[in-house]
């Protein structure tokens, strides 16, 4: 039994490690070298592919676009969602429940259900080929799950804290800033990480709204490399490495928060 356990555990570990090592090695190879030895060490650690991806492709532009879209989407989703989560947990009577249900309904609807009218709307507003358009849509789409996670946490804050603040003459805004936000930091951090991963990796909305190189984000740019490079795996994987690097580096340092955040966000599917 023990032996079977070890074999399985190691087998799965190898299934994760081997492809990742192969990806890294491949980025240092030429296409011919990949053909001759798939899993072998590269002949030398030449960085031609990395140079060529930045020189021949507007890779730096794609990277910046991803950074801008992700940062703004995360910050504003968190801001708006925490305000709403605070309001729905603090509201008296059924009205809070109604708003909570209205917002969390958004979690149940897969993006492909309303992407057609959404495309039309974004087009009519002149927001196709614009990072602003992507950011606005991102915020609206991920707010529901953020509200769900944050309000779950805010409900657990003892009511007496708010009562005490109210007696001292605190306004709702002060209570939000001085009590709700500081106490919700762990769940805000988890939500932030979940949102980072989600927005950084999103393909659908850039695919729908962006056609010009100037505005492409990394996942969309990668997808189009596929058309350009076909089975030129060294170039494709160089793209993969660059697109994944920020998340991988963050994961190495913030593992626990990643696991907590992504697990909390799994509701979104």
């Amino acid at each position: 039994m023990k032996t079977i356990k070890y074999i399985l555990v190691i087998a799965f570990a190898l299934m994760v490690i081997i492809p990742l090592i192969a990806v890294i090695f491949t980025t240092f190879k030429s296409t011919a070298e990949v053909f001759s030895s798939i899993l072998g060490l590269p002949e030398s650690f030449r960085v031609d592919n990395y140079i060529s991806i930045f020189v021949d492709q507007p890779m730096a532009r794609y990277f910046m676009n991803s950074v801008i879209v992700t940062l703004f989407s995360v910050v504003f989703t968190l801001l708006f969602a925490s305000l709403i989560a605070y309001a729905v947990t603090r509201m008296f009577g059924w009205i809070g429940v109604v708003f909570f249900s209205l917002f969390t309904f958004g979690m149940m609807v897969p993006a492909q259900v309303n992407m057609i009218p959404l495309y039309q709307l974004v087009f009519d507003l002149g927001l196709t080929n614009s990072l602003l358009g992507l950011i606005l849509v991102n915020i609206s789409v991920t707010m529901p799950v953020a509200i769900f996670i944050l309000s779950g946490f805010m409900k657990s804050i003892p009511k007496s804290l708010f009562e005490a603040a109210r007696i001292d003459g605190g306004s709702e805004w002060q209570m939000y800033r001085k009590i709700a936000i500081p106490l919700s930091m762990p769940s805000l951090a988890a939500t932030a990480i979940f949102l980072f991963v989600m927005h950084w990796n999103d393909l659908l909305y850039p695919l729908l709204f962006i056609t010009k190189n100037e505005y492409k984000t990394l996942p969309l740019a990668l997808l189009e490399f596929q058309g350009e490079f076909a089975t030129n795996y060294p170039m494709l994987f160089t793209g993969v490495i660059i697109a994944s690097a920020p998340m991988v580096i963050a994961y190495l340092f913030l593992q626990r928060y990643f696991v907590a955040g992504i697990t909390a966000g799994s509701v979104k599917g």
């Binding site: 708006f80 969602a81 305000l83 709403i84 729905v88 509201m91 917002f103 992407m115 789409v141 529901p144």
Partner: peptide
């Protein structure tokens, strides 16, 4: 209830506007 909740409605506003435009309207339109 509504009077007590008044200032809290302002908290909902920015998110609600975006959510209505970019989620509710397209979903109904579908």
């Amino acid at each position: 209830n509504f009077r007590k909740n008044k200032s809290l409605f302002l908290f909902l506003l920015p998110g609600l506007i975006l959510y209505t435009i970019f989620f509710i309207v397209p979903t109904v339109n579908a």
